[in-house]
């Protein structure tokens, strides 16, 4: 699974590059060059950027498919689930088929909701979100997850469901 802090690092790095580009543009903005000089250069650079960004986007897109969280894709990577846990969400509590699961084996959460949309979200003992799936009335979503460390995980609702949304918390023990 992807570490959110790494994602933040990527954003900061790109943000710094972007701010640097602006710094360079603005420092030189008080000088004056004719449009006939800047225009063709900008058009050429735009073309180069297009030929850089388009394949880059395709490569990132294809590479990112390895992180697809959907059951068939996850089972193909981590293996078929060894255990299934039924989860029903309702305003404002969780009903879990079991509250103890093993670590380092694929666990499948079979998730639905009784009333409104909710979201089953798993927070590891360090408080980091490691996986989530929507709990929807009338539908069953399947989330396959491998807990990489034992400890007490926190289940939170991440789809706004009314006045006690923030209190919709449960614990899951990973052995």
């Amino acid at each position: 699974m992807i570490d959110p802090k790494l994602v933040f690092g990527v954003l900061v790095a790109l943000g710094l590059v972007w701010t640097g580009v602006w710094g360079w543009i603005l420092v030189g903005s008080q000088q004056k060059a004719p449009d006939t000089e800047v225009g063709p250069k900008a058009a050429a650079l735009r073309r180069r950027l297009f030929y850089l960004f388009l394949p880059l986007a395709v490569v990132i897109f294809v590479a990112s498919m390895i992180w697809l969280p959907y059951p068939a894709a996850r089972a193909g990577i981590v293996g078929q689930p060894q255990l299934s846990v039924n989860v029903t969400a309702q305003q404002w509590s969780w009903t879990l088929g079991q509250t103890e699961v093993p670590s380092r084996v694929p666990v499948e959460f079979v998730v639905t909701a009784r009333d409104v949309n909710h979201s089953l979200s798993l927070y590891n003992p360090q408080g980091q979100l490691v996986a989530q799936v929507q709990a929807m009335p009338g539908y069953t979503n399947r989330l396959i997850h491998v807990f990489d460390q034992p400890g007490t995980y926190t289940i939170r609702c991440l789809e706004f469901c009314g006045i006690a949304h923030h209190d919709m918390v449960a614990r899951l023990t990973v052995k």
Binding site: M1, I2, P4, L68, P69, S121, L129, A131, Q132, L158
Partner: peptide, 14 residues
């Protein structure tokens, strides 16, 4: 970044 499905798994609704 968040529109990348794998990243959205740990960022959505945060």
């Amino acid at each position: 970044l968040d529109s990348t499905i794998g990243i959205n798994q740990v960022m959505h609704n945060t």
